[in-house]
Design a protein around this nucleic acid. Structure first.
Lengths: 191, 191
DNA sequence: GTCTATATTTCGATAGAC
DNA sequence: GTCTATCGAAATATAGAC
C-alpha cells in the first residue's frame, strides 16, 4: 500500500475531475486531459495503468470523505440509526459544501462508476458509503416508512446541494445548506 | 411531422432503453442493441440516422409524460406554484410508477443527455420539464427557503421512487409511493 | 517522468446487393 | 427493411528513445 502521492498524479486527478464534470467521463479522452495539463497522453500512462483507474482514484477520494459517516453508522444498530440520522446527514452536507465537484461527478456519471465494480481494489466494499446506505434501506428492522424517509432525506440533500452552484441564482451556499438542514429536521421531527 | 411509428422502431427503442440502463449509454454499442434484437447493426441505421437519435427519441418519450405537469405549471405564476406543488409532485410520482425505466435512464445518464442539447429538434426547450424546474429554482419572486423545498421534494421523490425497485427489499411500489407523498406533505404543510 | 511514434481495437457510419 | 462488407475516425494503450 505504498501509494506515492506524486505531485503530478494529483494534478492529473484534478484536471480529470474538471473535465469529467464538464463533458462526462466517457466523452472525455485522455488526450484532452493531457492537453489541458500540458503533457502528452503517454505521460498519463506512467501514472495510471488505464483510464478507469483515474475514475477509481477519484472514487477513493470520495471514500476518504465518508470515513466519519461510516464510523458513525458502525456504532449503531438499525433502529438507533434513525435517531442519529440528522447528525449524519449534517456531516454529509458539510462534505458536500467542501467537495461539491466530487459529489457532482459521482451523481452525474453514475453508470460509469457502476462499471468500476469489477475492479480489484474496489472490492473492499463495506467502506463504501453508498453500499452502506443501500444496506440500510433494505434493513427490515426499520419500518418501511422510516426507510423511505432516510432515502428521501439523502435525495433531498443531494438535489439541493448539487443545485446550489448557480441553480438557485446567485445565492450563498451556506444559506442554502441551512435551509437544507431545515428540510431534514422536518423529515425527522424530534418526538 | 410525419413520424411513422413503425413497429420495429419502437422495439429498437425498448431494447436500447434496457441496455442503456444496464450498461450506460456510452458503453452500449449499436452492435449490442442489434444483437439482442436479432438484427444487424446496419438495420438500425434504416430507422435512426445516428446513435444519439435513439437517445433523443427516448428523451421525447419523457417529454410526452410531462405534458400534464407542464400545463399545470403554465397556469400559475411564481408564488402560486408553491401551493399547487404537492399536486404536481403527485403527478410526477404517478408517472414514475408507470415509467420507472425512462426516469432511471435520464437520471443515471445525465451527462449523456446534456450533450444532446446541440441537436436540432431538441431546441424546442420550454416544453422540457427539467428546464422548467430550473427556471423555477432561480425565480426570485419565490423566497429562497421555498425554492429549496421545491428542489428538495423533487430530489426526495426521485431518490425514493428510483430506489423502489429492489432497494427497499421486496416491497410494494405503491406503498412506497404513499410514503413518498407523506414526505412531500411534511415539506409543504397546509397552513 | 516525459516524449515521439505506432500498434490495436472498437465503434459509428456508409455503400450497395437482395 | 434487412443484409454483407467495409470504411474511416477516434480512442486506448504500448514500445522505446531521451
Amino acid at each position: 500500500m505504498a501509494k506515492t502521492k506524486s505531485e503530478t498524479r494529483e494534478r492529473i486527478l484534478d484536471v480529470a475531475l474538471e473535465l469529467f464534470n464538464e463533458q462526462g467521463y466517457d466523452k472525455t479522452s485522455l488526450r484532452e486531459i493531457a492537453d489541458r495539463l500540458g503533457v502528452t497522453k503517454a505521460a498519463l500512462y506512467y501514472h495510471f495503468e488505464r483510464k478507469d483507474q483515474i475514475l477509481l482514484e477519484l472514487h477513493l477520494r470520495l471514500h476518504a470523505l465518508s470515513h466519519g459517516m461510516i464510523e458513525r453508522l458502525d456504532g449503531l444498530d438499525g433502529p438507533a440509526i434513525v435517531g442519529a440520522w440528522p447528525g449524519i446527514v449534517d456531516e454529509l452536507i458539510e462534505q458536500m459544501l467542501a467537495n461539491r465537484d466530487l459529489f457532482l461527478l459521482h451523481q452525474r456519471n453514475a453508470s460509469a462508476f457502476e462499471q468500476l465494480a469489477g475492479d480489484e481494489r474496489h472490492a473492499a466494499e463495506n467502506e463504501d458509503l453508498q453500499e452502506r446506505f443501500r444496506a440500510l434501506l433494505s434493513n427490515e428492522s426499520i419500518p418501511l416508512e422510516e426507510r423511505v424517509r432516510l432515502a428521501a432525506s439523502i435525495g433531498a440533500v443531494f438535489s439541493v446541494m448539487m443545485g446550489a452552484g448557480g441553480m438557485f441564482g446567485d445565492v450563498d451556499a451556506e444559506e442554502v445548506a441551512r435551509y437544507a438542514r431545515g428540510v431534514v429536521s422536518d423529515l425527522f421531527p424530534v418526538t
